[in-house]
């Protein structure tokens, strides 16, 4: 299992990735980055309200992971969910319009940043209660096994969620019943403002060991390391060997939410991560160094992404607010 520790990617390590793949990962990560920057800006303009948790810095995790899945695999995550939605190919317009609380949003403006879903893309939220997605994801895996549809669930959780009791209740059942689920701990080092060493005893990747769940540490700042580890974990779950835990060591550049000044860590720490470990910059460097593509090709992608994000922002500001009658819909399904 991949445990590459914060090394800069070397050209000779990646013969198995085609140019097409590398550019795809670059594009997908960049979409998340630019989308989130735009969301942050729109929050600043008052177009997005409430809580808004940005994914900037963690892009390699979800992009590497999603690229190891097959159609029909379900995914579920917490409230820092914009990146996951974009990585499952949900429409950036619908996501941004949900952030602005408009009728064109995925939840018709009734869910907001933390509560978005797409049955079509098998994205099951978007959950605002820390760790609630873990038993739910385990239940989705139960559904995959029950119906023998050949799919698995990928359940993302943070280094804060890992200390909730329901995580271990889920681990126990998943291991007991050999459910096809990969638990991806996105360890961005801070549970809101509390650093991992102040909140968590022991190693997070070992939290499933009492249940016999294998756990692996992955360089979550390298999309290729994530992809490699994900392939193995997904295969393990899919072949019926039960759950796997992947601890992705990653980093969020922004605060916990928009209103977090992030005084619990030093500027030097953030700067060091951004300049040395950035998943997009490092992949870009790799692409250029190994000759997969030139600057122009990447610039074309940049422009493309800029347009997609601009269109999403336009849509999200022009889509009307929900009709007042929507207040009373979607409470119960008519039996």
């Amino acid at each position: 299992m991949a445990t590459s520790r914060r090394r800069k990617p070397q050209a000779d390590e990646t013969p198995q990735y085609s140019t097409e793949q590398l550019l795809k990962y670059y594009r997908e990560m960049l979409l998340i980055r630019r989308f989130e920057e735009k969301a942050g800006q729109m929050y600043g303009m008052g177009l997005i309200g409430g809580f808004c948790h940005l994914y900037i810095g963690q892009e390699a995790v979800v992009v590497g992971m999603q690229n190891a899945l097959i159609p029909g695999d379900s995914i579920i995550t917490s409230y820092r969910d914009h990146g996951h939605m974009l990585a499952t190919d949900m429409d950036p317009k619908g996501v941004m319009a949900e952030l602005t609380g408009r009728s064109g949003g995925y939840s018709k403006g009734k869910g907001g940043s933390m509560h978005m879903f797409s049955r079509e893309k098998k994205f099951f939220g978007g959950h605002g209660i820390v760790a609630a997605q873990v038993p739910i994801g385990t239940g989705l895996a139960f559904g995959h096994k029950y119906t023998q549809d050949g799919n698995i669930n990928v359940c993302y959780l943070g280094d804060g969620a890992i200390n909730q009791g329901q995580v271990y209740e889920s681990f126990n059942m998943a291991a007991l019943w050999k459910l096809p689920v990969v638990y991806v701990i996105e360890n961005n080092k801070y549970a809101m403002g509390t650093s991992q060493h102040r909140a968590s005893a022991g190693e997070l990747c070992e939290r499933g060991s009492a249940y016999g769940i294998p756990g692996h540490v992955v360089d979550g700042m390298s999309v290729l390391a994530v992809k490699e580890a994900s392939e193995k974990a997904v295969a393990h779950a899919r072949e019926g060997s039960g759950p796997v835990i992947l601890e992705m060591k990653t980093y969020r550049y922004r605060g916990h939410s928009m209103s977090d000044p992030a005084k619990y860590r030093t500027k030097e720490e953030v700067t060091k991560m951004r300049t040395e470990m950035d998943p997009i910059d490092n992949l870009k460097k790799l692409i250029l160094e190994n000759g997969s593509a030139d600057e122009d090709a990447l610039k074309t992608i940049d422009r493309d992404i800029k347009n997609i994000v601009a269109e999403a922002a336009d849509f999200a500001t022009q889509s009307p607010e929900p009709d007042p009658a929507e207040l009373w819909t979607d409470i119960l399904i008519e039996a």
Binding site: S107, K108, K110, H115, F117, G125, D330, I331, L332
Partner: peptide, 9 residues
């Protein structure tokens, strides 16, 4: 969740 998903879930 049904409400929060705009009727999807």
């Amino acid at each position: 969740t049904l409400y929060m998903s705009g009727g999807q879930m």
